[in-house]
Write a protein that binds this DNA or RNA. Structure first.
Lengths: 253, 253
DNA sequence: CGTATCATTGACGTCGGTCAATTCGTGTGG
DNA sequence: CCACACGAATTGACCGACGTCAATGATACG
């Protein structure tokens, strides 16, 4: 939770073989075009778990494509209450907002060690001008993120603690399982503390703990260490009102 | 709350003199360009209060620019619980989502009689191709809407009932007052029932009623009939953690 | 080992929900 | 113009889901 911004560590990059080539902003570009884009970007970098990426009320000079790791996006109220807005996974485009010169509306920090592709803010509109299909891609991405935020809102506003927890955990469960294709394990690595879950759901850590105990005792899921095991995905989706089809839909393209 | 979809009633349209010319999707277009766009659209229409615009789980064949009136965007859970996601005001672009061929993720219905500019779904990408700046504008709009949804999420997840109500009411208060320029009245027309407020905030109507009474007795605001009167904007913003500057920011461009 | 973070649990308090009755307001038909 | 209807607002009595406070364990790490 602490914010100890570290200097970005440069690592080698190659857009054509990028691990999120088909999910990120630049997905619509051909191998030829993407070589050009490479000139606009600053490079790839790594950050350690706990580091801040950008911060509420500060103008953020770069945009990021998350290549590896988890990032938490959140808002802090004056008195310290925290609302986690989203957990960003590889492929996410971070830092974009209507007015890039305005201070950020939320903060971002690393839940795990991460790797990001860094893109200077001032180059973004040049890029869009050079490749109009990227502006459309940007609209697609922000629309998807908006839809997920609204889904999250419904979850927090209108579901019980048990339903909320089930719903929150199923989202990353299906997302990371889709990528870690082939072996459809029912366990995933989940780098979240119960405090993260609480702050994402508008609950307290104590109540999240009790809720998780209930779900565990009902043999629906188990969290031990940083591993989430879903024992009964169907029943859990039922409880959560989680639409597996819609999640699949969001993942496509 | 009932959904009685009515046939759209055609009314005359002229894009150049459109009342939301500078806020809508087509804001970046010159008078010359907008004439061309006029060929893509179906026309302007009106709908009565209570009519549905589009519905969750149904593919919606048109996109809409709201010209006049208020529209409620919401999701319904299987058991009938409702979460209102946003109240759309004139200038809003409605119906856009990542995959236009997929069923809508939420529903929309008219809080008041409305007027909309109707745009066939299948023409959208042609339009973007013809005018790339519109794709960028679309990204801007969806990013703004996403930021508002996240603000709403924080409101519901991390604020008390009193704070939530204050926050929810200040948003439209400043939005409509900005447009109804000049006379900075402290009253606006608010076409919401307490049930709408409750469903937007994750509360019950009973508790919203009690909360409003508290705010009224503290001489902070008053709702009578369909009129909201804000008696102490500064104090209310303080309570709500409402950032007037950020709201102004969102309204610009 | 000492220290820090996270998880867990019990006792108890409260904010907001539930249920149900009453009132108000507006529009409608007689 | 009045009686009635129906949705919305209001209120009281009571309840329960979730929060608060505080203590205790479990893990990890330098």
């Amino acid at each position: 939770m602490s914010h100890r911004p570290k200097k970005l560590l440069n690592i080698p990059s190659n857009c054509r073989t990028c691990s999120v080539r088909n999910e990120a902003l630049c997905a619509p570009l051909s191998d030829g075009e993407i070589a050009v884009v490479e000139h606009f970007k600053s490079g790839n970098c790594t950050l350690p778990a706990g580091a801040g990426l950008y911060s509420q009320d500060e103008v953020c000079s770069d945009l990021y494509t998350l290549l590896d790791g988890w990032v938490s996006l959140y808002q802090i109220l004056e008195d310290g209450r925290r609302q986690i807005l989203d957990f960003a996974l590889p492929g996410a485009f971070l830092g974009f907002q209507p007015n890039l010169d305005a201070p950020a509306s939320h903060s971002a920090y690393c839940l795990t060690d991460i790797a990001v592709c860094v893109f200077p803010r001032e180059n973004l509109f040049d890029l869009f001008r050079a490749h109009p299909e990227l502006a459309l891609r940007m609209a697609w991405i922000t629309a998807r993120d908006g839809a997920m935020a609204r889904e999250h809102l419904t979850n927090v506003g209108r579901r019980s603690a048990r339903e909320r927890v089930a719903h929150l955990l199923l989202e990353p469960f299906y997302r990371v399982r889709r990528k870690a294709d082939a072996r459809q394990e029912n366990s995933i690595n989940l780098p979240l503390t119960q405090e993260h879950i609480a702050d994402a759901l508008g609950l307290t850590t104590v109540h999240v703990n009790r809720t998780l105990r209930g779900l565990r005792q009902a043999d629906l899921l188990d969290i031990s260490g940083r591993t989430l095991t879903v024992r009964d995905p169907a029943m859990l989706a039922e409880i959560a009102g989680f639409d597996v089809e819609a999640a699949r839909e969001r993942a496509s393209a």
